[in-house]
Design a protein around this nucleic acid. Structure first.
Length: 432
RNA sequence: GGUGAGGUGGCUGAGCGGUCGAAAGCACCUCUUUGCUAAAGAGGCGUACCGGCAAAACCGGUACCAUGGGUUCGAAUCCCAUCCUCACCA
């Protein structure tokens, strides 16, 4: 949620930055917000004046009663009837105005950072750099679902039976590889100074609102109606919400947290080659990193976090590139996002495995997550950042496709050997 | 699931219809004094919003004692609902 004070101070600048998102024209919404706020303040001023008057009378009654002056008390009581009605009416009006204002304000996406290129879609993203390693040249590139057909370590069909499409079953060495990757990512995060969190996998509406999933992405989350809870689409939600409604001491920043969770996404509207195999699934594993920082530290931190995620890909020996997302391809709440994509040799295309974003105060404003400056004074909104480090399925897909050997086995990069307990996945591995 | 108790400021905890944004203690901050790694004394110490101002400081106001309703001239205090916590029972 944007800060109203910023809108008021610099309307032109706000519109200019919103225009980078390339889609919808927000100028009328911004105007509506400002007009609504004007109305709100006028109503509120009058309402508070009336309430002050009413409070004065009530106090006078109390004093008259204490003195035993029943006449004066009755007289005061008579005065309040009209006042009460006026207050009740105005309260209703002000409440409506505030609700409308909030509903409009919440529809404005975050302002892209000045370094973010304007653009409409993924085509306008900038490639920051590419790290390509030499790949074996396959006579015939094989997508991971074909590699898996021989290995049998991920069972898509039985997942369909259990739940539906997009719920793979990891079997034997496949399951163990998941565990190895999770442990590798967590150990690395811990070594980089992140405190490990195991959060709940379901959250309430307040939490989903706090990080911006509600109301923007309501349809993308699984919802448990009986208890009004949402299955988390990413650990970002519970972990960032840890400090909701808190005022932290400045000395505690930066706060660095990480956590492994399964992620649940409905992915309504996806189709085609995008959803084949592990490309897009409804439940997947991910290690997330989150930082809560002072505003002046936010952008250096974004670079640091992105570089950290890249270092994991270095260790995994996967070819990758870093994209700076254009305004139109960024998430609703983000001010600046880097995506990391790995090269998938079997499908001959790039697959997103990490997204690292700076939200500035967009989330913390909703979260009421503030810190008190060491020099004293008013609490200020902290800046939040998060990134995947990393999401598993496409890493697995790339490993399978890029590291497939002539005999059908798949060699694993050395960093995984101690976690996996072997150097390769073999066609002879046990399966269902 | 049942019954009972309860949810108050950073923490502990008083208040149970009027001047209570809320006693007291702890923690924290400033100052003073003695001096030595501590003690004593004085003062300060919630958040949001509205207005005064161009802004900060500051001043005035409004709201907030789990949440949402209600009763009343007046609610932290009474009533109802919801959520949560604790204890005991099943």
């Amino acid at each position: 949620m944007l800060q109203l004070s910023f809108l008021q101070r610099d309307k032109a600048g706000t519109l200019e930055r919103l225009a980078k998102r390339g889609g919808e024209d927000f100028s009328s919404l911004v105007e509506a917000v400002l007009a609504e706020d004007q109305k709100r303040r006028e109503g509120l001023s009058e309402l508070e004046r009336l309430r002050a008057e009413s409070n004065k009378i009530a106090k006078a009654v109390g004093i008259a009663m204490a003195k035993g002056d029943a006449g004066a008390a009755d007289e005061a009581r008579r005065q309040t009837a009209e006042l009460k009605a006026a207050i009740a009416d105005l309260e209703k009006v002000v409440k409506q105005t505030e609700d409308r204002l909030h509903e409009q304000l919440v529809r404005l996406p975050n302002l892209p950072h000045e370094s973010v290129p304007a653009g409409k879609s993924a085509d306008d993203n900038l490639v920051v750099h590419e790290r390509l390693r030499e790949l074996p040249l396959w006579a015939e590139p094989q997508p991971h679902w074909d590699v898996l057909a021989k290995l049998g370590t991920i069972d898509f069909e039985r997942g369909v039976k259990l739940t539906g499409s997009g719920f793979p079953v990891y079997v034997g060495a496949g399951a163990k590889l998941q565990r190895a990757l999770i442990r590798f990512f967590l150990d690395r995060a811990e070594a980089a100074g992140y405190l490990e969190i195991q959060p709940p996998h379901l959250v309430n509406a307040d939490s989903a609102f706090g990080t911006g999933q509600l109301p923007d992405k309501e349809g993308q989350m699984y919802f448990v109606g009986a208890d009004n809870l949402y299955l988390i689409p990413t650990a970002e939600v519970p972990i960032t919400n840890l400090y909701r409604d808190e005022i932290l001491a400045e000395e505690r920043l930066p706060i660095k947290l990480c956590g492994y969770t399964p992620c649940f996404r409905r992915e309504a509207g996806s189709y085609g080659k995008d959803v084949r195999g592990l490309n897009r699934v409804h439940q997947f594993d991910k290690v997330e990193i989150v930082q809560i920082v002072r505003p002046e530290d936010a952008y250096p931190t974004l670079e640091e976090m992105t570089r950290y995620a890249e270092s994991l890909l270095d260790d995994l020996e996967l070819p990758y590139r870093r994209l700076l997302l254009c305004g139109g391809d960024m998430g609703f709440a983000s001010a600046k996002t880097y995506d990391l994509e790995v090269w998938s040799a079997g499908q001959e295309r790039w697959l997103e495995v990490s997204s690292v974003s700076c939200f500035e105060s967009f989330q913390s404003h909703r979260l009421k997550l503030r810190y008190r400056p060491a020099t004293g004074g008013k609490p200020v909104l902290a800046y939040t950042l998060n990134g995947s480090a990393l999401a598993l399925p496409r890493i697995v897909a790339a490993l399978l496709e890029n590291r497939r050997q002539a005999d059908g086995s798949v060699s694993l990069p050395p960093c995984l050997h101690p976690y996996f307990g072997a150097e390769r996945l073999q066609p002879g591995d046990k399966t269902l």
